[in-house]
Structures are given as structure tokens and as C-alpha cells.
């Protein structure tokens, strides 16, 4: 039986992530855990996150998971969600500036004053609600998901990967930003697939069966 570990480091509600995975991968064993050994032995790892980046990294350190997350992100199917991909980059502007896990090159930047280029209307921050994701390649995790499908977002900071080749999904909110990044065994999204109805469930199902 495939074992999918959802890393639990005390940041936010992981029940929804677990429930959505159980829904799409009923034959997998899903565990929500902060146990180093369980994460090391899992076949697949999900790295979610909510709240602030400073608390995220502090809690990862508190549970002694920094190296385990870095290792999993390099050697097995790994899915980052929401704050997860932000933590994987090098540095975030949030909380006055925070050094991150440096698994991927790039920074996390706050949305500034935004205007809709078409209407001139001021855009709200956080970027909250259903926005389109433009798939930039035919990655296995996009399989069965129509181009430009909408996913549920809620965030005030966005990913700015240093290598353009990392970006596999782009979303417009006043300008285009990276809403999905990927490299080798790693796929990470700024949105919440567990809250994105059919499109999100399809992405999670794809991850459960993904063999990079």
C-alpha cells in the first residue's frame, strides 16, 4: 500500500488536505504526522502550510523537520501547498525578511498596490478566491485538468522563482505570477487543491499516482 505522509508541524488545518487525499486515493494510506521516521519512510510527501512564514520555519525547526523536508523534496514525489512552496524558496519578505529552506532558487514577495490593468480597479489583498491557472507545460500533475481551470487561492505573498524554467503554472492578478512551480520529483502550488472542487481533486489524484 502506498503511504502518503502529510507533514504536520502545527501550522493550520491539515484535516481538509487529508480528507481530500482519502477521497481521491482510497487505496493509499494517508497519515498526518511530524514523525521524522514516518516522513522518511513515506512513498510520497505533502508539505502544506498556513499562517506566517516565520512561524512556519520556527515550527519546522521545533519539530526537527528542516532536514527531513529538504531531503524529501529532493528524493520522492513531493507536493507543496500554499505556504509550502514559499518555504521551499530562498528568502521571504514576510515578517521583516525570513531565510527559507533554499530547496529552490527564488524569493517570496508581497503583493503591492495592485490595479486591474483592464478596468483600473484597485485589487484587494489578500488575493482571495477562484482564479485561473494557465498551465505552461504538460506536466503529469495537470493531466485531466482543462487549461485555465480555476483554483482557490488565499495569500498576500507570491512566489518569484529565480529560474523561469521552474514555473509550470501562471496566474494573473494585476500581473502574472508563478502559481505552480516544479522540478524533478517536486511540484508545488500557491493555491489550495483540497478546496478547489473538481480541478483540485484531479490534481491530488494525479499526485497520488505520479511517478516522476
Amino acid at each position: 500500500m502506498t503511504h502518503i505522509a502529510i507533514i504536520d508541524y502545527g501550522m493550520g488545518n491539515l484535516r481538509s488536505v487529508a480528507k481530500a487525499l482519502e477521497h481521491v486515493a482510497p487505496s493509499s494510506q494517508i497519515t498526518v504526522t511530524h514523525d521524522r521516521s514516518a516522513i522518511r519512510h513515506a512513498d510520497r510527501v505533502v508539505f502544506p502550510g498556513q499562517g506566517s512564514i516565520r512561524d512556519c520555519l520556527r515550527e519546522l525547526a521545533h519539530w526537527d523537520l528542516l532536514d527531513v523536508v529538504r531531503e524529501a523534496a529532493r528524493n520522492k514525489p513531493f507536493l507543496g501547498l500554499c505556504l509550502g512552496p514559499q518555504a521551499l524558496l530562498e528568502f521571504s519578505e514576510e515578517n521583516g525578511g525570513v531565510e527559507c529552506l533554499k530547496v529552490l532558487p527564488g524569493r517570496v514577495v508581497r503583493f503591492g498596490e495592485l490595479c486591474d490593468p483592464a478596468t483600473g480597479e484597485r485589487l484587494k489583498v489578500p488575493h482571495m478566491g477562484w482564479n485561473q491557472v494557465h498551465q505552461l507545460n504538460d506536466h503529469g500533475l495537470w493531466q485531466g485538468i482543462p487549461q485555465d481551470s480555476r483554483f482557490y487561492f488565499v495569500h498576500s505573498y507570491y512566489l518569484q522563482p529565480a529560474d523561469a524554467a521552474l514555473t509550470v503554472g501562471r496566474t494573473d492578478y494585476g500581473f502574472g505570477f508563478a502559481s505552480a512551480i516544479a522540478r524533478d520529483n517536486l511540484f508545488a502550488v500557491q493555491f489550495h487543491p483540497e478546496k478547489s472542487a473538481q480541478a483540485g481533486l484531479q490534481l491530488l489524484a494525479n499526485f497520488a499516482g505520479w511517478n516522476p
Binding site: L123, W130, R150, Y173
Partner: peptide, 8 residues
């Protein structure tokens, strides 16, 4: 194209 207005 962009963020959708929501119905709740």
C-alpha cells in the same frame, strides 16, 4: 481574465 467574484 482574472479573479472571479464569488457567490456564497
Amino acid at each position: 481574465m482574472g479573479l472571479a467574484k464569488r457567490i456564497i
